[in-house]
Computed example of a mutant assay.
Amino acid sequence: MSKASRSTRILAGAVALGALVTLGGCSTSDPTKAATETNSAGGANIVVGSFNFPESEILGNIYALALTDAGFNVSTKFNLGPRQTTIPALTDGSINLMPEYNGNLLFYYDTTATARTTDDVDNALKTAIPSDFQILNPSAAEDKDAYVVTQATADKYGLTSIGDLSKLEPFTLGANPQFGELPYGIPGLKDTYGVSQVTFTSIEDYGGPATVKALVDNAVQVADIYTTSPDLVTENLKVLDDPKHLIASQNVIPFLNKSIYSTQLADVLNAISAKLTTEQLIALRDQVEGSSKTQPETAAQDWLTKEGLLKN
Rank of each mutant, 00 (worst) to 15 (best):
Q295C: 06
L168I: 05
T228E: 05
V252A: 11
Q264E: 15
K244Y: 03
D267G: 02
N236S: 11
Y184F: 15
E169G: 08
E289H: 04
D267Y: 08
L189I: 06
D231I: 07
P183K: 03
L246R: 01
T294P: 08
I272T: 02
L265Y: 03
K293H: 15
V222N: 00
I203K: 07
L256Y: 01
V239Y: 00
Q178S: 13
Q295N: 11
D231V: 07
A248W: 11
T277C: 11
D191A: 14
V268R: 03
D267C: 04
P254Q: 05
E289Q: 13
G207V: 12
I225G: 00
T263P: 00
A219P: 00
L237Y: 12
L173F: 10
G180L: 07
I272E: 01
S291C: 08
K238A: 10
T172V: 14
E289L: 13
D231G: 04
R285I: 03
E169I: 10
Q250Y: 05
D241E: 14
D242Y: 03
V195W: 06
N251D: 09
G194N: 00
L284D: 10
N270I: 09
G208M: 01
K213Y: 02
P296W: 03
L240D: 01
G185E: 03
T263I: 12
P243S: 09
D241K: 15
V288W: 08
V216D: 03
G207H: 08
T228F: 11
V198M: 02
E204L: 09
L276D: 01
D205Q: 04
D191Y: 05
S273I: 06
Y226C: 14
L281G: 05
L173Y: 09
S249P: 09
G207Y: 06
T227E: 00
Y226V: 15
G208N: 02
G174F: 07
P183C: 06
A175N: 13
Q264S: 02
V288G: 14
F179E: 10
P177Y: 12
V268E: 03
T201E: 11
S292V: 08
D241Y: 13
P254I: 01
S291M: 12
